[in-house]
Design a protein around this nucleic acid. Structure first.
Length: 790
DNA sequence: GACCTTGGGTTTTTT
DNA sequence: ACCCAAGGTC
């Protein structure tokens, strides 16, 4: 879509009394109605989970259009993910038709890229600038740290990256930081140098990182009031969803957008209503959010933005939505009870008229695989009862938890997807292909070129690269330019030829880039470099998979062109850079979704499994030490609970592998915050951990020979499923103070007899390595493994 | 310059 | 358990 900014100033009728079609208000409760109908400079909609905020937001926008208070082009709606934006646009379209297409409905990042691409030159950037993701930023930082030998000062790539990110989110750029920094502190001045070089590196590569996208837009508006005025005039109604998760930079951006337009920036021929001073009044601001669902403090989100909204905008109106249309009362009671433990919050009580519903089901597994088996079995039971896989989701706190779930799901033949987990665009071969494309779109991006200079192998190794780099620096050229001079560098004939060939290929393709379809560009590159053919020819199954991934990427570029026929290479690259985990959720593909709690925000499912509800995991041990960390973890738990419509399951495991080492896990403190009467424990932590509790357990059966996986600290989980859910299940036991020494013979319920070959760890975490006579070598947690000393 | 082995560090969450 | 960097060998 193209936007002709200068044609956008239109009439703005502002009736005092809003007359909105009753049809638009159908089914809304009084608070929701008020949120749709209120007219004023600022509105805060405090929307509890499941309180119908999207309905309110879409109808509010539709109302503005229907009543002719606004043109579609005067609407700017900011959502949290691209998927949410697409959904919102769809729902608005249902209400007002194709007018929806004229609105800006996008994420902060997408909106900023759009603005920055238009105004790139003003900011000293070229239009095709690259957007660096976290990995790209770190790759750049890594080079810089190496150059400066900064790791000797105790700097780590991740540490520096995080600090820079934080500074940018607070709108502190290098110059500002340089003025604040204590230069007497050698570490601080060293950090300044790192920050400076990183900033220069991005600049030279004509690149921006994620944080820059927001910050640079703010700087753009502040440095060029006439540019800011374009957007201030244009966007008369700014609406922001998930406002509790905005950071300082995003807040500043909103403030810039809703500033009144000074008279000198009002065109003489404007058709817009001007104030007494000849200026144009500020756009109206509507924000929607719920401080109880603020879960992004780690990336700078500041709850104060929503909590202090009324101080920020003194004339603001606040509407509170507490009636929940999503979950059963049992689920809401649990959610209310849990979040009630966070002090310092505005009391809010979710309620429904929909009835109590089922009790929450709890389960304590012996191992993560055992827990996963419970999840799988319950999902099968739900499926039998008529639920579809699409309406079921499994939540985890960390990405690492998905593995056992995946393994069991595969074995149970449950179709699943892991939005954000596939990391398609993070695979090496995809990053390589993308680097070629980036280098075409942005020849200044040395980092992208360096990545593929020797991919596929063409004999351009580190030494040759260094020579080119040195030449580039000497002559002030880009690496790409330097390649064309390769003949003058006294390199070997073979390597010189390889460099010139690559330079020519890139130049030839670049010449077509302005008009060619991304798919054709990519195809040419993959063919001419021989990358694809090389993978196909290697005979390695992994390489074959890589080749298929590249084909998939080509297919995606085709699909991109189909959806946006005029989309060029830069548009495609932008789309990929801003593609988020939640965007790949397809709620009709017939599979169960496994995702992190963060990804789950904003979604809802009939049945939700909250797994790994253990101390150290939820709350995560790293956040426990941070101020406000526990409260944020509790909000995360709360977000998880409130995603469930009808059924909620909470599960945990007695053991959890950490860095590959099995260790004992304790039930999360959050479990105790749910009233006991609400949970129906199939196996409670008490049952599982009881001293010397020895339960009958299902007889192990191994149909079909060797199991695909074997778990040293778990029972084989391929026993018949019916037996598993109905009967009293796992043996869970406690061997008390049992100690083992190297050489001891033991008997294991599943693995038979064996000899202890090593003992590591202490106390409840001590682990025996056992060579079994028939089952091979296993590592066992001595305290709870089903073993006895012989 | 490519390939292999080894050892250390590492995971919270993400646009 | 896994990923990556470094160092050794061909």
């Amino acid at each position: 879509m193209t936007w002709l900014l200068d044609d956008l100033d239109g009439d703005q009728a502002t009736p005092d009394a809003v007359t909105v079609d009753e049809e638009l208000l159908a089914g809304l409760n009084p608070q929701q109605r008020e949120a749709v109908l209120y007219r004023g400079p600022a509105l805060l909609i405090v929307a509890g989970a499941g309180s119908g905020k999207t309905s309110v937001l879409t109808r509010r926008i539709a109302g503005l259009i229907a009543s002719r208070e606004a043109w579609p082009s005067q609407i700017l709606a900011i959502t949290f993910t691209n998927k949410a934006a697409a959904e919102m646009r769809g729902r608005i379209r249902e209400l007002v038709g194709s007018d929806a297409d004229g609105m800006w409905i996008s994420t902060f990042h997408s909106a900023c890229v759009r603005i920055l691409r238009r105004q790139a030159e003003v900011m000293g950037l070229k239009q095709g600038f690259t957007i660096y993701d976290t990995a790209d930023s770190r790759a750049l930082l890594k080079r810089i740290l190496k150059e400066l030998d900064a790791d000797t000062l105790g700097f780590s790539v991740a540490g520096v990256a995080n600090r820079i990110s934080k500074l940018k989110n607070e709108l502190t750029d290098v110059d500002l930081f340089a003025r604040q920094v204590n230069m007497d502190d050698p570490k601080e001045s060293a950090f300044l140098e790192l920050f400076r070089r990183y900033t220069q590196g991005l600049r030279r590569a004509n690149a921006l990182d994620f944080d820059d996208l927001i910050a640079e837009t703010v700087y753009l508006f502040r440095a060029f009031p006439d540019v800011a005025a374009l957007y201030q005039r244009r966007f008369r109604h700014v609406l922001v969803d998930e406002y509790q998760d905005t950071n300082a930079a995003q807040y500043a951006l909103i403030r810039e957008l809703v500033r009144p337009v000074a008279p000198e920036h009002v065109p003489l021929d404007t058709r817009m209503r001007v104030g007494a001073d000849g200026g144009i009044p500020a756009a109206t601001l509507t924000v929607v959010g719920d401080s109880d669902q603020s879960i992004y403090a780690f990336r700078g989100a500041d709850m104060r933005n929503i909590v202090e909204f009324e101080q920020d905008f003194p004339q603001a109106k606040v509407v509170l939505l507490e009636q929940n249309y999503r979950s059963t009362q049992n689920i809401l009671d649990a959610a209310n009870a849990v979040i009630g433990n966070n002090f310092d919050r505005v009391a809010k009580n979710l309620f429904t008229t929909g009835g109590a519903g089922e009790r929450i089901v709890g389960y304590t597994g012996y191992s993560a695989h055992d827990e996963a088996q419970f999840v799988a079995d319950e999902i099968e039971a739900l499926k039998k009862a008529g639920e579809t896989y699409d309406d079921v989701a499994v939540f985890v706190r960390t990405n690492a938890q998905t593995r056992p779930l995946e393994e069991i799901f595969i074995r149970s033949a449950i179709p699943y997807r892991i939005p954000g987990g596939t990391k398609f665009y993070e695979r090496a071969e995809i990053k390589d292909a993308m680097a070629y494309l980036i280098q075409i779109a942005n020849p200044d991006d040395d980092l992208a070129l360096r990545r593929v200079m020797n991919v596929p192998r063409r004999g351009i190794g580190p030494a040759t690269e260094a020579a080119l780099q040195a030449h580039a620096e000497r002559t002030g050229q880009t690496l790409r330019d330097a390649m064309r001079d390769a003949a003058s560098l006294g390199l070997g004939a073979k390597v010189t030829g390889a460099i010139l060939d690559l330079a020519k290929l890139l130049d030839d393709v670049a010449a077509t880039a302005a008009t060619a379809a991304p798919a054709d560009i990519l195809n040419t590159l993959l063919q001419q470099t021989g990358y694809l053919a090389g993978l196909r020819a290697s005979g390695d199954a992994q390489d074959e998979a890589r080749a298929e991934n590249l084909e998939e990427l080509v297919a995606q570029t085709r699909e991109f062109r189909r959806q946006t026929p005029e989309g060029n290479l830069v548009d495609f690259l932008t789309g990929v850079a801003l593609f988020a985990a939640a965007d790949e959720i397809d709620d009709e593909d017939g599979s169960v979704s496994i995702m992190t709690l963060h990804t789950a925000k904003g979604l809802e499912y009939d049945a939700v499994f909250l797994t790994g509800v253990e101390e150290e995991l939820l709350p995560h041990r790293i956040s426990s030490g941070e101020p406000g960390g526990i409260a944020e973890e509790r909000r995360l738990f709360y977000v998880g609970i409130t995603r469930a419509r009808k059924r909620l399951y909470v599960s945990l495991s007695m053991t959890r592998s950490l860095f590959g080492e099995p260790s004992v896990a304790m039930p999360s403190r959050f479990l105790q915050e749910i009233p006991a009467s609400l949970i129906d424990w199939k196996q409670s932590p008490g049952d599982a951990a009881g001293r010397n509790a020895m339960r009958p357990r299902a007889v192990t059966s191994r149909e079909g020979g060797r199991p695909k996986f074997s778990y040293s600290t778990s029972f084989p989980s391929d026993r018949p499923k019916k037996e598993w859910t109905s009967a009293v299940t796992a043996t869970v036991r406690d061997n008390g103070d049992l100690t083992l020494a190297v050489g001891d013979r033991i008997r294991h319920t599943d693995f038979g007899e064996g000899r202890v070959t090593d003992v590591t760890g202490t106390g409840s975490k001590s682990i025996a390595e056992v060579q079994f006579d028939t089952a091979g070598r296993k590592r066992l947690l001595i305290k709870i493994a089903p073993i006895e000393k012989l």
